[in-house]
């Protein structure tokens, strides 16, 4: 309850579309996709593909592939976690599987069994993209 309240107050700053919430009593088998922020406390067998912030808090149990922009885990996950910006494993997190994010934080007490990869972040990719067309345009103008 306390956590839900906390996240709710910080959510409206991020566009205020309403944070989706999957309660502890729900089980989903399948795929959850889309944009916006989501607080997950239920069970999922399948896939998350979220263009936003995903918070997996206890008593959540997630099995499968999880993709989001930022991922904060304090529940249990078995599978692949990947975030475009960052992954944060809090001290009550229990993760078994693969992590992939340009930024990673793991708190003391978190359980992590598996593999982690750190691909280059979205900022460096975006700045590289932005720099390239500029160069090309400049090259065109010069001669």
């Amino acid at each position: 309850m306390g956590l839900f309240g906390k996240t709710k107050t910080s959510a409206p700053a991020k566009g205020g579309q309403g944070t989706a919430f999957i309660g502890a009593g729900l089980t989903i088998k399948g795929k959850v996709s889309g944009s916006g922020n989501l607080i997950m406390m239920g069970r999922l067998e399948g896939e998350f593909d979220l263009d936003g912030e995903l918070v997996i808090s206890p008593p959540a149990e997630v099995k499968g592939e999880v993709k989001a922009v930022t991922l904060s885990v304090s529940g249990a996950v078995q599978g692949t976690l990947s975030a475009r910006e960052r992954i944060h494993l809090e001290k009550s997190a229990r993760v078994q599987g693969t992590l992939a994010a340009p930024r990673l934080a793991v708190e003391d007490g978190a359980f992590f069994n598996g593999e982690s990869r750190m691909p280059p972040g979205p900022q460096s990719a975006a700045s590289a993209k932005r720099a390239e067309p500029k160069k090309a345009a400049a090259g065109k103008d010069e001669p």
Binding site: T19, I22, G23, G25, L26, G30, K31, S33, G34
Partner: peptide, 23 residues
């Protein structure tokens, strides 16, 4: 788990599959 809890699938979200539970 509070039995009266309501989950929310927000506007930009799509769930494909099976959803079941006590809320």
């Amino acid at each position: 788990v509070p039995p009266g809890s309501t989950s929310l699938v927000s506007r930009e979200l799509l769930i494909e599959g099976e959803i079941s539970g006590e809320e």
